[in-house]
Amino acid sequence: MTAIEAASADLSSAQHERARRLALLARASRDELEAAWAALPVQPSVTALRGPETGLVMLRGRMGGDGAPFNLGEATVSRASVRLGDGSVGHGQRLGGDRQAARLSAIFDALAEGGDRVAVDALCAAIAARVEADAAREAAETAATRVNFFTLVRGED
């Protein structure tokens, strides 16, 4: 999860932790979120502050990979902001059109903000484990296609 860690450089430790949590919730599957919601000992009351809604995010690249930015094209994004009965506010946002997943992400973010960390930490740990395992397997599959050159003949006469 190096990319996620790098994303949240220069932040306070609380912001860093929240950025990491939001990155993991954005990668959670709908099933993971719904199962975690169903398993909550007490389901909080939820008020929608914004959304859930689906819209677009304009994706930017850089010329030559490292130069001036340009607009590459858009992606669908879904987001939601909620307030729980205890007043804590959470935000959820993810690529794609799954508004329900965005709403559940916002609820878990709000739960953690309200200090109810047990369920959220367990959920995030499970997501992190899955994401890291997938990334490790994919990296190993790519590594197996690495070309190891060996010299047959070096013509120098």
Binding site: A3, A7, Q15, L22, A23, L59, A75, S81, H91, Q93
Partner: peptide
């Protein structure tokens, strides 16, 4: 690659997930 947006109400950038390029 990671997609990140700045979220004004949070005050920092958050990841939305990954896209293939």
């Amino acid at each position: 690659v990671e997609v990140e947006i700045d979220v004004p109400e949070l005050g920092f950038a958050v990841s939305l997930g990954e896209i293939r390029l």
